[in-house]
């Protein structure tokens, strides 16, 4: 644990998470079969977060043996985890791969907002988000050394928290090389909407919204 979360960072996270309002759950899917590259360190990070704040409960599943849950939450790779709110509802916030490096920021921000911290988006934009009726999947490919990526992940997750039709998933490109190659990712952040519409770079939320509205 000392390797992943040094004491000073742990203390910082403790302070930040102290403003969490509601209890939340992290539903984490590992993979005992096969060769899960980053499962152990992902679990280490999530366990550490659970230990820091008692409003966080970590539940571990195996994506191969807990098939029903894996299917319910659309888990296709491991490590992967979703956040559930205080009603145990999945709002579409998913992380595929470890949110370490720069991505710790989108992870902490998702925890806070899932636990009831108001999302800072103006009312007009919130109305636009609420009006989306189609099913939307947003994939955000990232690398852990990318300083511009957490903003893109945060935007995708905020959209999904504000509309049940939208799912936002982070995909750590180095761990999931095959899927990254499938989507021709060689620059990050890369945002893919409904598997075909691509945006490159950390686009403002409004730009992502424009693209979704044009679907």
């Amino acid at each position: 644990m000392s390797k992943l979360l040094p004491d000073d960072v742990k203390e910082q996270i403790r302070q930040i998470l102290s403003t969490m309002q509601n209890p939340i759950k992290i539903l984490y899917f590992s993979e005992n079969e096969g060769n899960c590259q980053t499962c152990s360190e992902t679990k280490e990070l999530l366990s550490a977060i659970e230990g820091i704040n008692d409003k966080v409960t970590l539940i571990e599943k195996d994506r191969n043996t807990d098939k029903e849950d894996a299917e319910k939450y659309g888990i296709t790779m491991a490590p992967s985890f979703v956040l559930l709110d205080d009603n145990e509802t999945y709002k579409g916030v998913k992380f595929n791969g470890i949110p370490a490096g720069h991505e710790i920021n989108s992870f902490i921000s998702a925890l806070l907002e899932m636990a009831g911290t108001p999302i800072e988006i103006d009312e007009a934009t919130k109305k636009r988000i609420a009006a989306i009726k189609n099913k939307v999947n947003i994939k955000v490919f990232i690398t852990l050394s990318c300083p511009h990526c957490p903003g893109a992940v945060q935007n995708a997750h905020r959209l999904s928290m504000l509309n049940d039709n939208i799912e936002g998933e982070m995909i750590e490109a180095q761990t999931f090389q095959a899927i990254s190659q499938k989507y021709d990712v060689s620059g990050v952040p890369k945002i893919v909407i409904n598997d075909k519409h691509e945006l490159v770079g950390n686009q403002p939320l409004e730009t992502i919204l424009d693209q979704i509205e044009a679907l």
Partner: peptide, 17 residues
């Protein structure tokens, strides 16, 4: 070929190479 090989952020994209 921007983001299909052409990059302006080494720290972001170096791992792909």
């Amino acid at each position: 070929f921007s983001n299909k090989g052409v990059s302006y952020c080494t720290t972001c994209d170096a791992p792909f190479f």
